[in-house]
Each structure stands twice: as structure tokens, then as C-alpha cells.
Write a protein that binds this DNA or RNA. Structure first.
Lengths: 335, 335
DNA sequence: CTGAAAGCGCTTACAG
DNA sequence: CTGAAAGCGCTTACAG
């Protein structure tokens, strides 16, 4: 069975390609009778437009591409999944198709399997970029080609890009202050890799709060996965002897609970624990985990609204939005 | 900055479009000197092919599209995330780009935001379909248009489709038998919605094993999320008084642990718990969760291999592959 | 209200 | 080793 094209419909109905095109795109200036006939044949033949041919000419696809981490999830966590679900729903409501494709800011150009190739071909009208890095070649490309895009995360390279990000500094700052208010005096902070802005910022906020209050603190980087945390945490806890532990990523808290248990310490009596992300599962841990909530709903709404605004209007001024974190209190920090 | 095209390069170098095309596609029959000159200008002008224009003519894109649940994750769980990561990696190794797009077997045709539109336009050479349903209109379309695809999950409608699926019957069967060997005599099974084949099959295997052994059992459907499980589990446990609980989806086990704890029962002494999926976090629960492992690595390998085989050879015979589940034993079932 | 022509950026099939 | 022509399936700009 061959693909049905515009001209097949034209031939079958006796009208021109152009008239058929008018019907398909719901344009005016077609006799009702003509419209009816053409629509009938379209349905009968199960015709559907070829988006690529259309895009080649009209340069618009009603599709948005979302670039996600190519190395696929060393640090693709539960939070990423939550926001992906939200994006799907919200773009759909606005009438856009979404595609997700793996891509990296480092080798988006040379690597033939990088999803960024697709965007260069005009497959999408605009893009969302996760996991951007300093000197991201994709951002340069998008800017110089005038393609609308929003970065998911801070961009420190340029003043003219739009981004939405969690206020990671405040996440670290508020988290530390909260534990300090709860009378913690020796606070440990487990974080991911120091090369990521997210982790740097959280560390910075945490450090400032601790130093201002004059409490002891220790920051441990490179804890990217749950296994890693379990591997190193007991020794560090024994050495530093904290009365409060802050952990970046609720999912890692599960392993932390295990470590603390095995050291025969109690949460929250001996050690309070505070997470970041407020995952759905966290309230079911024992004890339920307090966590810094990142408001996924607000985050994804801002992303979608901003990109769609850029898609419709030209020359939207660059906007930079920070989502304010909020502490959700549960038993892991109540004594 | 306008997009650079083939003819821009041709004009600049003084060669024809066709010769430039030869260089880009690494075809033979071009003088070394010519190749060098053209390559130089390509680099200088930062040219990259327009995949859409190319596909319009050559009908091949080196791209694979993966359709995921459109309603975005009512039941998109941690297992889905794991396999997505794996697919990205494995398609990449084989030189293919991947895009993920939300789509539904019910309204892929009418809904303009459904990712299936993209495939109809030939954006991808082949497809993977998650969350297929009975009478899936996408499967009909793909079959009648001769587009290679593999279904992720059983297809009961047709004999001529290829699929890879977990052997869900065996997952239910082996899980039940394992608990029976461990001397459980009253076994509860929490599952998702009965409309899904996955859940039906797991239930069927479970039931057969229990009946064969003559133990008491109870199957509870409609437990799609962690909150739901927590909401209903205590009452059901009190009523049925199980000594073994089997739960479909490790992530829900967290809430189950909480329920059991709050009922002042001990795992595994009073109640053994067995999950399905063997998520990375499960070994860190307290006590560590035994689980039916679904071998994500093998699963994704089979999917990728099968689809790529179909992409290269015509008329590959339909294959149906079932992944054999394996029980991973941990403390939650050891007494 | 309708249509003929040109062109989007490529490749295929052919000629030289 | 190189190129001119036709065409993939659409839309744009124009004419009638």
C-alpha cells in the first residue's frame, strides 16, 4: 500500500492540488460542496499530510523538541521523569506535539546519533534544553539561527537566553537554615558532581547559611547514585558525627536511612534527615522524609508558557525565572 | 543567519550540487582534490544536511521513534525509565537516532498532538510501541504500510506482528511458587488495572500456582500507584490476614512496608513481601526487598536487535520473544 | 471560488 | 570523475 498524497486526492476528485490543500488546512474560499467532496475522499483514502514536505516549505511543524541527557541517566532521576510527564500533558493542551531526544552539549555536532541533528533540519519549531553545559554548542547554534528555545537550568554564558530553573541556591540555603532552626549543630550535605551548576549552587547556599549561623558543616560531592551513597555514607557519618543530614535527591535518602539504621542511630532522634525533590514515595518512608519541594507543576508550566510565547511572538525579551523551593515537613525532622 | 544549503556550497566551490552531495554522503567517484575543497567549505560554512529534505526523497532517516504512553504516566513507572535509558544507549551504539513521543492506540489518528503523526510523515524508519491495546489503530497502520515495528508487550490481535515482552504469566507463577516454597499459606497479590494484559497475565500465573498448591490467595486489582496501595492495604491485610504479600511494582512496596509496620507486623517474620521489577532502590529498603527481576538489559537488547534486523532486511519473519523472569532473594522473604 | 507555476533542499537515474 | 534534469509532497505568491 503506497502513501496517499495530495495529488492522489486531487486526481480522484478532479480538483487541483491547491484546492485540496485549502481544504486540508481549513482555509476559506472553497465552495461548501467542493469541501465536502474532498473531505469525503480524504477520509476514504485515509490520507494524512506529510509533515516533512509541509515543513520543507512552510517552516512550521507544531512540534517541540525536548533534549534530554544523552549519556542517558547517569543522573537522570525521578525528578526528570516527573517533569517529563508534566511537559507531555501541557504541550498537548496547547496543541503541540512533543518529541524527546537524547543530545549532549559537547558533541551534538559530530555525533550522527545526536538528536540535535533533527532540530537542525527544522523538525521542530522550538526546543527545550535539559542538561546544558558551559559553552554549549547547541545554544550557540540556536541563537545564531534564531530558533526559539528555553533552557531548563541556569545559563551563565549569555545574557540573552531564557531559562527556568529551580532556585538551587535557595534550596541549599533554606534547607540548611531549616535544620539549624531545628537545632542541628553538625550538618552533612550529600551532593552530586561539582561540575554541575545545580550542585554548585546548592552547596553555595548551604555553606552560606551554615557559616552565618556558625554551625559545623561538611559537604560531600560526587554522590550521583543511590549505590554510591550507601557505599560511602557510613564511614563519613562515623567520622563527622552529624546530627543533621541534608541529601540532594530524595531517592538517595532510602540508602541513607539504611546506613543510619545499620549504625544503630535513630531518625530523627540522633540524626535528622532532609531531602530535596519531594518525590511521591517520600511520605511513605519510615519515618516519612522531610524534603525541599521543587514545585514540578509550576516549573513545567513556566517552561511551556515561555517557549510557546516565543513561538508565537518574535523578539520576546529573554526571561529568567527561578522557582522558589519550599520545605515540606515530615517526621524525619520532627523531635 | 540563513540556513546553509547544498547549493550554497556548490556555488561557493564552483562544483555542482550533485558533486557536493557525493562528498557529503561519502560516495566514491570524486577526485581527492575536489573532495578536499568541498569539505573545507562545508566546515567553514557550518553546513549540515536537512534531514527532512533528504527523507522526502530517499525515504530513510536513520531514526527510530519510540511511542510512549500519551496520558503520560498514570502507570509510567520506574521500570519504564530504566528501559528508556537502555534503549537510548543501545540505539546509539547501532548508529540510530531515537525520538520518544507520546501516543495512544485509541486516538492516534484524530488527535493532532499525537506523536504518531510524525511517523506517518516518514520521520522515522521504524518504531517501537509501548502501551499497545487491543485493536490498536497504530498497529493496523504500520502493518498496511509496511513500516517495521516491534511491540513492547504482547499482541493478541494478530499473528504477524513481532513483540518482546516479559513473561508475565511466569512472573506471577514463579512469584507465587516461590512464596509457597517459603511456606506461605495465605498470599495476597496487589496488581494494576485488570484491563491491561500485563496484569491479567500476572494474575493468571499467580492463580494457577496457588490453586495447584492448594493455598489461600486473594488478588487485588486497580492498585496503580503508591498512594492507592497505602490507602487500601491496611484494611485488606487486616481482613485477609496474609503471611505473604506479592506486589506488582517494587516502587509500591515502600508504601506496603509502611502499612505493615503500622499494623505492628514484622517483615518477614509475620508477612513476607515479594516485589516485581527489582529496582535499584529495592536492596536498600528495610528489610531489603526480594523481587522478580525482569532483566531490563536483555529486554532492551532484544527490542533493539529485532527492530534493526527488520530495518535492514525485508520480510523478516515475525518473532515473539518472552523474557524469563528470575527471583532475586533478599531479606524480605528469608526466615 | 479555483488553478498553474515555482520552489523548499535534497536524491535518483541517467548522460557524458 | 562530473553535472543537468526530474521529482519527493507539499506551500507560497500570483493570476484569473
Amino acid at each position: 500500500m503506497k502513501k496517499v498524497t495530495l495529488s492522489d486526492i486531487a486526481r480522484e476528485t478532479g480538483f487541483s492540488i491547491k484546492t485540496v490543500s485549502r481544504v486540508i488546512n481549513e482555509e476559506p474560499n472553497v465552495k461548501e460542496e467542493t469541501r465536502r467532496i474532498i473531505k469525503e475522499v480524504i477520509t476514504k483514502k485515509d490520507y494524512s499530510v506529510n509533515i516533512m514536505a509541509k515543513a520543507l516549505k512552510s517552516k512550521t511543524t507544531k512540534t517541540v523538541i525536548v533534549f534530554i541527557d544523552k549519556h542517558s541517566g547517569g543522573y537522570w532521576n525521578a525528578w526528570h521523569s516527573l517533569i517529563m510527564k508534566d511537559l507531555i500533558l501541557k504541550f498537548k493542551e496547547r496543541g503541540f506535539k512533543v518529541i524527546f531526544s537524547p543530545s549532549s552539549g559537547k558533541d551534538a555536532i559530530e555525533d550522527e546519533t545526536d538528536g540535535f541533528e533533527l532540530l537542525k533540519s527544522g523538525i521542530a519549531d522550538g526546543a527545550l534544553i535539559f542538561d546544558n553545559m558551559t559553552n554549549d554548542i547547541r545554544i550557540k547554534y540556536l541563537m545564531s539561527n534564531g530558533i526559539p528555545f528555553v533552557i531548563v537550568g541556569k545559563d551563565l554564558d549569555s545574557q540573552n537566553t531564557s531559562y527556568v530553573d529551580l532556585d538551587n541556591y535557595m534550596a541549599g540555603f533554606k534547607g540548611a537554615n531549616y535544620l539549624i532552626e531545628k537545632k542541628c549543630e553538625r550538618i552533612l550535605f550529600f551532593l552530586g558532581y561539582e561540575v554541575f551548576t545545580v550542585d554548585q549552587e546548592r552547596a553555595r547556599g548551604f555553606k552560606n547559611a551554615c557559616e552565618k549561623a556558625g554551625v559545623d558543616y561538611k559537604i560531600v560531592f560526587n554522590i550521583d547514585k543511590i549505590d554510591k551513597l550507601y557505599l560511602v555514607s557510613k564511614e563519613i557519618i562515623n567520622e563527622f558525627n552529624p546530627d543533621g543530614i541534608f541529601v540532594s535527591g530524595d531517592e538517595k535518602a532510602i540508602a541513607l536511612y539504611k546506613s543510619i539504621n545499620e549504625l544503630k542511630k535513630k531518625i530523627p532522634e540522633d540524626i535528622m534527615v532532609l531531602g530535596i525533590d519531594n518525590l511521591p514515595q517520600s511520605r511513605f518512608l519510615y519515618p516519612p522524609l522531610s524534603s525541599v519541594d521543587q514545585n514540578v507543576d509550576q516549573f513545567s508550566s513556566k517552561l511551556v508558557n515561555l517557549l510557546i510565547e516565543m513561538l508565537y511572538k518574535k523578539n520576546v525579551k529573554a526571561k529568567r525565572i527561578l522557582i522558589d523551593p519550599k520545605i515540606i515537613e515530615r517526621e524525619s525532622t520532627l523531635r
